[in-house]
């Protein structure tokens, strides 16, 4: 069973993938909730344009997304240079860049899931909360958000799974540097490019399946718990 033992480099890739996906998921969550809220409730000119931009990474080739990120967030890119100078956050060829690429690719899925569940919220409950003295912010925090929770959880898991599998945009934007930007997917790809790498590729594939399966099951449990709390009154 020796072929099942993971090498240090493989462990590194797994840990890196988990970290990148978690950060991508958590960092994009507040933005996803805000955008979902705007798309679900807002009535303004240019709403369909915003909707289009949010969904672009879903339909564009990942390489194109990666390339755009490279142009915008690269060392000399307008946003990348600005952030590097004022906040010290550097994206290019760092794991943070991989997280950014994953977040962008997963964003439409997360927004979509949250938006659908915001649209399903009974607005009459929000009116009731207002008549009880709750201002708009409190209504959102105490009524809307708890009712949207199942959608948020589903969106987070979906985004996490997407981030775990993300390959094209990441490799285009931050390349494939072992220990820094080489995620699970990139590592599997690398294994397939060298002679005798099949065993390594297979090991990582198994890990990938286990992680995906676990994520799905956790999401089922969480969604079930959340749905029980907000069962229709």
């Amino acid at each position: 069973m020796d072929w099942l033992v993971l090498s240090d480099a493989e462990w590194t890739a797994i840990r890196l993938s988990l970290r990148v996906s978690l950060v991508a998921m958590l960092a994009s969550l507040p933005f996803a909730i805000a955008v979902a809220m705007i798309l679900a409730r807002g009535r303004f000119w240019g709403k369909s344009i915003l909707n289009g931009i949010v969904h672009l990474p879903l339909v564009m080739p990942p390489v194109v997304t990666g390339f755009l990120l490279l142009i915008l967030f690269g060392k000399r890119g307008p946003i990348g240079a600005f952030l590097a100078e004022y906040t010290g956050v550097v994206f290019s060829f760092r794991w943070t860049g991989a997280a950014l690429a994953c977040a962008v690719m997963a964003f439409p899925l997360m927004v979509r899931s949250i938006r659908l569940s915001i649209e399903a919220v009974d607005r009459r409950l929000e009116q009731a909360a207002a008549t009880l003295g709750a201002g708009p912010v409190w209504v959102f925090l105490t009524v809307t958000l708890p009712l949207v929770l199942p959608g948020i959880i589903a969106g987070m898991i979906l985004a996490f799974a997407k981030a775990m599998g993300e390959f094209g945009a990441t490799i285009t934007f931050v390349s494939n540097i072992p220990g820094e930007t080489q995620t699970l997917s990139s590592a599997i790809y690398t294994f397939t490019q060298v002679p005798g790498g099949d065993a390594g590729a297979f090991r990582l594939t198994l890990i990938s399946i286990v992680i995906s399966m676990a994520a799905l099951m956790v999401s089922e449990v969480l969604a079930h718990m959340a749905a029980k709390r907000v069962d229709a009154a």
Binding site: R124, A128, G135
Partner: peptide
């Protein structure tokens, strides 16, 4: 004046209890 500042209680036709 928005509803939350009026301090008028409202009982609706359907109870509209918070399910969560």
């Amino acid at each position: 004046v928005p509803p939350h500042r009026r301090r008028f209680g409202y009982v609706f036709q359907e109870a509209r209890l918070f399910p969560h």
